[in-house]
Amino acid sequence: MHPAPSLLIFTTLSGAGLGFLFFLGLGMPAPTGWVAFGYFALAYALAAGGLSASVFHLGHPERALKAFTQWRSSWLSREAWAAVATLTVMALYGAGLVFFGTRLAPLGWLGAALALATVVTTSMIYTQMKAVPRWHTPLTPALFLTIALAGGALFAGESGAARVLLIVALVLQLAWWVRGDRRFAESGTDLGTATGLGDRGRVHSFEPPHTGPNYLLREMVFVVGRRHAMRLRFAAVILMAILPLVLLLPAFGKIGAALAALVHLSGVAVSRWLFFAEAEHVVGLYYGAR
């Protein structure tokens, strides 16, 4: 799949921002006044900034409000509702902390739950795609959730939680890759089933329908980004989990913790690049590609 920059920015930043809002909602930490304003401003910059980046992916952004209508069937529509609900509830909760110095705990818990729900809806947009076998696994929401929580813990300064979550995210990321590399073969879809001719012999693409490229090839059969997959996986693991774990050591203090959050975000961006670039859509089979 084509790793559109808007989608990379969106899933990376909004994931971390929503994870950050989750911890703020739980009162970890529960600052008041201007300190609280700083925390919430950063969380909103990440979450809302990421969400607004996704709008640039649209062919008709001016019709974006229509995306709220199909929550009964569409994960993208559910994501829109969950995101708006999270940002609204957390704004009220944040206003309590910033302007009145009071923590409305139940509102925070609700906001925290909504933040997690938003991450789940985002991940389900990809997980539901049966045509992209690598994404179509319960490990995808698990991975999105732990990465969002790990990023949130880093921004919230919850070092203890961050350490555990980074290790879980690392394990899930490795498991997701190992499983993902086998998913296409396991899906049972090949050029034989795609053409219905598989029981007659070995099918191979003799000539494509057009000499030039097309939307499908650009969007679904994006193979260029896979060239350095192994090196990028290595970089993602180091930046996303291992280096932040080192920077969280007490010896590096507050600056180390701040750096850990930024390094982690860059690692998540690499992981998300691979999430899209390595995902093979079954339509590639019709073109003799993966």
Binding site: L58, K130, V283
Partner: peptide, 16 residues
């Protein structure tokens, strides 16, 4: 007139 051009339906279609 109601299509926002998000492209999700094209992703969901296995047949292109």
């Amino acid at each position: 007139d109601a299509c926002i051009g998000c492209g999700l339906c094209a992703w969901a279609c296995p047949y292109g």
